[in-house]
Design a protein around this nucleic acid. Structure first.
Lengths: 194, 194
DNA sequence: TTGATTCAGTACCGAGCGGTACAGAACAGC
DNA sequence: GCTGTTCTGTACCGCTCGGTACTGAATCAA
């Protein structure tokens, strides 16, 4: 497959990484195309040719974010015991929420919570994305339950929801400027409920 | 003080209540003046004469929200024991987040988390508002500690932060459509850490 | 070299944004 | 009556929004 025509003058993945940061910092509606294209180092028509439109760009950004910036979550799920899964997830999550080389908080939360009139499906999309993570955790904890790795009275679905609630609450705190130590101290307390 | 001039044709407090719901559902930047004034039943100049501008209206809305819709928090602080304070707060909070006659979630979280370029001070204002609530809870728990009502190794500041993290995480879940029962089940688990 | 194809860049579109000028309507005191 | 004052309503302001037409430039195959 030979490439024809003028070659693209920018790296699409690198541009997407810049877009992630803008969406992360400003949210979906708070990120204007001027913000985005300036950060991406390209102009508007190039962005439209490469990604479709603003919403498509956002979905691509969230997908790449989930794959790259949330790799720690998949590693946590691979831990041998339910306790290790939860603790690893919450600890690495707290670190990810306060990475000094990244915006504070979580794109999936900051991207957009409210949404009623027009872009309600953006909030829905992010909620579905978070729910998928919660379900993966619930499935992992269900497996632990069948393996006898969890107290018999434990509810894997409720437990997964609790872990995600702590994670999302920490994301809200991180977005407000909480320190890594503060988030880890919260994790210390949260783990006592497991 | 006699009133001169044409009397106002609407109830400012009632209009503010309508504005609260719009901000609650759409967030600060997602709520347009057209949305707001339509819901308030007034036109633009009336709103500007009564409240100043959009940001002033939002601050007034948040203040009224804190006073009316979050009265349960002050009642929780008045409980006799630290345990009762925390449990009452989390339970009434979970109910408030899922009131059928109100938007799901919490205005203070939904109003705006991200904010970088222009309206960053809106996110900051809301973060300060939440921090004030967290400090009030920490003060109450400090008092409990001096009264011997809390384990000697407990950190009131960290504990207050944990409670607020659970509350805010539940707010994120509520905004995504979680049921009241789900939130209360999360509270059940969260309380085991106390 | 030529023609086809694809990207880059400028300049622009209609629509909606927050905010306001201005004219008229409704009240008070005189 | 009239006058001063305050509210209502229409119509408008400049600006930014997301999105696009169009001209050139850069690369391919032939």
């Amino acid at each position: 497959m030979a490439e024809r025509g003028r070659p693209r003058g920018f790296d699409a993945d690198a541009a997407l990484d810049r877009a992630i940061e803008v969406f992360w910092r400003h949210g979906y509606e708070g990120a204007s195309l001027a913000d985005l294209t300036t950060a991406m180092g390209i102009n508007r028509p190039s962005m439209y040719a490469a990604f479709g439109n603003k919403e498509d760009l956002f979905r691509r950004a969230v997908a790449r974010y989930a794959e790259a910036d949330m790799a720690y979550a998949r590693e946590a799920l691979a831990q041998p015991t339910a306790r290790a899964v939860i603790e690893t997830f919450l600890r690495t999550n707290a670190d990810a929420l306060t990475r000094p080389d990244r915006p504070a908080g979580c794109l999936s939360v900051q991207g957009g919570l409210a949404g009623g009139s027009d872009n309600g499906h953006i909030a829905q999309f992010l909620a579905d994305s978070r729910a998928a993570g919660e379900k993966a955790l619930a499935d992992r904890l269900s497996q632990a339950a069948t393996e006898g790795d969890l107290p018999s009275d434990a509810d894997p679905v409720a437990l997964a929801r609790y872990v995600m609630v702590v994670s999302e609450g920490n994301a809200v705190h991180a977005a407000a400027g909480a320190t890594r130590a503060a988030l880890q101290a919260t994790v210390n307390i949260a783990l006592k409920a497991i």
